[in-house]
Design a protein around this nucleic acid. Structure first.
Length: 282
DNA sequence: TAAATCCTGTCA
DNA sequence: TGACAGGATTTA
């Protein structure tokens, strides 16, 4: 569920709340599959007494940098939320699978109904970097120029929608923002990536940066379940142009938005604004 | 390139 | 009751 803007919003919220805090203990681990690279006992043994030194984001991964070069990395997948409780006094939400207790009795809780979310422990920075480098392409909000985008697209086959969803192409874009970006760029999701002209690449680069930046400014999209670190929903849902809006008028041309399945994902588009070019006749 | 898989909740 | 969900990996 959370994509780059939601993870970024959470990282910012957590940064101001937990940096400098010392971990007292961890509890509530009731779903060991959540921890693909560390046994629950290892987490419980390693984390206490460590201090949170930084909170960061890479793609859709949230990164907690701890003292002693320990790293905790969380991917929320479809339904995970990280909730900070300033005094650890509120009731545990249903589907809480991990609680990190700080020494001042505040808590960071991982709540994830669908249990797709994953928490990784890395024992040094190199291990973390190797893990991320294996899975993620560049950050879309770090100097995405047309030239850069063209070199990324070069040699990639496949359709724009699946390319945008590929985390090794660009890190952090998911189904909702892929549709918003393609609408903004006036590009059809089934357009083959290699066929983009220079002006089209320009539009795509601009759309990627604009859509993600504005979504961050609105603190993310709460389409159904996303909440930020303080339990607040985002505000971007009222700014969606196509996602989830089948039958409603396209904000650009007023013709109805369509829903289709493309790349095995629900896909919303304006078939008028986002036309496929006519195939060349040989 | 597509389908199956991991899960639970919600909505039509 | 069944379809669907903001993800990503594994398998065919």
């Amino acid at each position: 569920m959370p994509e780059l803007p939601e993870v970024e919003t959470t990282a910012r919220g957590l940064r101001e709340r937990i940096v400098g805090k010392r971990i007292a203990e961890v509890s509530g681990i009731d779903w060991p599959r959540m921890l693909p690279n560390a046994a629950p006992e290892l987490l419980a043994a390693v984390l206490p007494s460590l201090t949170v030194e930084l909170v960061d984001r890479r793609g859709k991964y949230l990164i907690l940098g701890l003292s002693d070069d320990r790293w905790l990395t969380i991917h929320r997948k479809m339904s995970g939320n990280l909730v900070f409780d300033p005094d650890g006094a509120s009731l545990l939400a249903p589907h809480t699978h991990l609680v990190i207790h700080f020494e001042d009795s505040s808590e960071l809780r991982f709540v994830d109904p669908r249990k797709f979310g994953r928490v990784y422990l890395f024992l040094d920075r190199e291990e973390l970097d190797r893990f991320l480098a294996q899975r993620l392409g560049p950050e879309p909000l770090a100097d995405l120029t047309v030239a850069r985008l063209r070199s990324l697209v070069e040699g990639r086959r496949g359709r724009l929608k699946s390319l945008l969803l590929d985390q090794r192409f660009l890190a952090g874009i998911g189904n909702l923002y892929a549709d918003e970006i393609l609408w903004d760029a006036r590009l059809h999701p089934e357009r083959s990536a290699g066929s983009l002209t220079r002006p089209e690449l320009r539009r795509l680069a601009d759309a990627i940066v604009r859509v993600l930046t504005e979504a961050i400014q609105r603190r993310g999209t709460s389409f159904s379940t996303y909440l930020d670190a303080s339990g607040q929903p985002g505000e971007n849902q009222s700014s969606l142009q196509v996602y989830g809006r089948a039958g409603l008028p396209c904000p650009r041309c007023a013709r109805p938005i369509e829903r289709r399945v493309i790349a095995q994902r629900g896909t919303w588009l304006c078939p008028h604004c986002q036309r496929l070019p006519r195939p060349a006749v040989p």
